[in-house]
């Protein structure tokens, strides 16, 4: 088979779809996963990671969705909240960490503690600061089986960490999407609508891809998504596929958007199968991005820059 031949020649990363970071209606979300279940993606991270007030899917709904998606042959991981403040949020966290069926992605050290205590292998999400192989080794000792590199690290740092990474730990890279950059107590969507957070009226439901923030010269550079701030530019590391393989990256994460995610998955999958040129595919994806692509962090520069020239 063609695939086997490819695998001996190259390290073959798996494809993952990250958690939906925005607040979508239940129908939109379930429709999206219905379609994705047939898409060539190996791992699905699901769950609410941004705001505990988003209630259209409760913990039981997420667990039920996990069962359904798992039945389609996907690896399902339950992602947890990044900013935990209230006891009710810890209660939800405990329920997720105590599930015996699915791996959990920790996005806060509180989650790491609960998972380590239960001796359950877990994933370290982008919300956990792993900046060195020492830190990774420590957390692997507590049960981390995979880590997602913090988005601000460069390929150079990653290559050093890869050289010292502990046996059996997988490395995942945020390869495509608007990067989560910050979390706050304040809800910026509610602030935009002049509403207090406690009476936000769930306005973020109206912005399935967040609100774009621009300078007064009209240069878009951030996306407001409730208490989370993301990049406005889309990180696209598809052109770096050869290097990602060389670095033995195990998983490439695509972060879902309301529009075009299936196309992105198809493009990555086709490039991984060797059926499409990564530069050409990246250029096609970038052509439809409203605020362009960026790879600055990967190249060791300001994150919003696009450094590599595409063919």
């Amino acid at each position: 088979m063609m695939k086997a031949a490819t695998m001996t020649a190259y390290h073959q990363p798996k494809l993952a779809l990250g958690p939906v970071l925005y607040y979508w209606s239940r129908e939109t979300l379930l429709d999206c996963y219905e379609r994705i279940s047939a898409a060539p993606v190996d791992i699905l991270y699901i769950g609410e990671t941004v705001c505990a007030k988003r209630h259209l899917m409760n913990t039981g709904d997420w667990l039920a969705l996990a069962e359904r998606l798992s039945a389609t042959g996907k690896e399902v991981v339950l992602s947890t909240l990044a900013l935990l403040e209230a006891e009710s949020e810890l209660k939800t966290l405990r329920r997720l960490c105590e599930n015996d069926r699915f791996t959990v992605e920790a996005n806060d050290m509180g989650a790491v503690r609960l998972l380590a205590e239960r001796k359950m292998p877990f994933v370290l999400g982008t919300g956990i600061n792993v900046y060195s192989d020492q830190t990774l080794r420590f957390l692997a000792g507590l049960g981390a089986k995979r880590w997602v590199m913090p988005v601000e690290l460069s390929r150079q740092t990653l290559s050093t960490i890869q050289a010292g990474r502990p046996e059996g730990v997988e490395t995942e890279v945020f390869a495509y999407g608007r990067m989560p950059l910050a979390y706050s107590a304040r809800c910026f969507t509610a602030r935009y609508h002049n509403l207090p957070k406690d009476d936000c009226q769930y306005r973020c439901l109206n912005d399935p891809e967040g609100l774009t923030l621009s300078t007064r010269e009209g240069q878009a550079f951030l996306t407001l998504n409730g208490i989370q701030t993301q990049s406005a530019q889309t990180c696209n590391l598809l052109p770096e596929l050869a290097e990602l393989r060389e670095l033995h990256i195990d998983v490439l994460r695509i972060s879902p958007q309301a529009q075009g995610t299936a196309t992105v998955i198809e493009a990555f999958a086709a490039c991984l199968r060797g059926e499409r040129d990564a530069g050409e595919a990246a250029r096609a994806l970038n052509a439809v991005l409203p605020y362009g692509a960026c790879d600055g962090y990967w190249q060791g520069q300001a994150g919003l820059r696009q450094v590599a020239a595409l063919p």
């Binding site: 601000e152 990067m179 950059l181 910050a182 550079f221 701030t229 520069q301």
Partner: peptide, 21 residues
């Protein structure tokens, strides 16, 4: 700091340098 300290990359997104790094 309006953002959770230790979890804010806005500065490196624009300048390449952040509090964490």
């Amino acid at each position: 700091c309006i953002m959770v300290e230790g979890r804010c990359l806005l500065s490196s997104y624009v300048t390449g340098e952040s509090p964490n790094m």
